[in-house]
């Protein structure tokens, strides 16, 4: 579904040349949930923006369903970390979810159905008339997820979406993502710096090196499909995988 080949990104500005991403190659199969984890400041956001067509890579290529990505493709939806700044404060929740659909030239009836369905599945069916800033942080991020769902993307890109919410809300949102992924069979690329989150959510975890970024290791998460906060996190296999990823991230931080 998503192929990243030899992705390389260098920022050039005022005589300084910063190599953010050195050489990344990986792919995400249709319907897969892949987590990217790496030390802080390892170019995760740069990478995701390149994948999403928001940044042009210096070299290499990103392909979505075989087509090269050279701008934000209609088959991708983004969920940003800063939910407070990624929802339009002058629009009500329903309008926020609907706006991208208008660009897709869907009929009003179809748009309404998609909006209602998306809000329903994130548990905000009765918040359509509220403004985003009237909602809690966790609910705002649910709105952002609903907006992405309604867009019916082939691939959903999530950039540390739960980094700014409290631990309990985060656990709820993680379960929400798992449930939506299972129910809808969407392909998700999930970037995080939280090792537990990566293992808990992913079918596969890619550990990234420190910047300039390469893929250090790929790990298949062979936990049962049905996961929950209570049992999965005390599963011995979860602990093993977590330890493995933790070691890798620590090693990445030390630059080895």
């Amino acid at each position: 579904m998503l192929d990243v080949q030899g992705l390389h990104k260098v920022y050039e500005g005022s005589g300084r040349r910063t190599e953010a991403v050195r050489d990344l190659t990986f792919s995400v199969a249709a319907g897969e949930l892949v987590c990217l984890v790496g030390p802080s400041g390892c170019g995760k956001t740069t990478l995701l923006k390149c994948v999403g067509g928001l940044l042009a890579p210096t070299a290499g290529e990103v392909r979505l369903a075989g087509r090269p990505v050279d701008g934000p493709p209609p088959g991708m939806a983004f969920v940003f970390q800063e939910y407070g700044r990624s929802l339009f404060p002058w629009m009500r929740v329903g309008q926020n979810v609907e706006l991208p659909l208008k660009q897709k030239r869907l009929s009003r009836q179809r748009r309404r159905a998609l909006v209602a369905d998306a809000l329903e599945s994130v548990g905000l069916a009765d918040a359509a008339g509220a403004y985003p800033w009237q909602l809690s942080g966790g609910m705002q991020q649910r709105v952002a997820i609903a907006r992405a769902l309604a867009y019916e993307p082939e691939v959903l890109l999530m950039d540390e979406p739960f980094a700014a919410v409290d631990a309990q809300t985060r656990a709820e949102l993680e379960d929400l993502v798992r449930r939506l992924w299972r129910e809808r069979g969407i392909t998700i690329l999930f970037v995080t710096h939280d090792i537990d989150e990566a293992v808990y959510l992913g079918e596969r975890v890619l550990v990234l090196s420190a910047s300039p970024t390469v893929v250090r290791e790929q790990l298949k998460v062979d936990l049962p499909d049905q996961r929950d906060q209570l049992h999965t996190r005390v599963n011995p296999r979860f602990a093993e995988l977590r330890t493995r990823v933790y070691e890798q991230v620590q090693a990445a931080k030390r630059g080895r």
């Binding site: 939806a77 983004f78 940003f80 700044r85 990624s86 339009f88 991208p100 660009q103 897709k104």
Partner: peptide
Amino acid sequence: DPVLAETARSYGI
């Protein structure tokens, strides 16, 4: 806001 601008761009607005 750059995040808003980027959101708009990513959704083809």
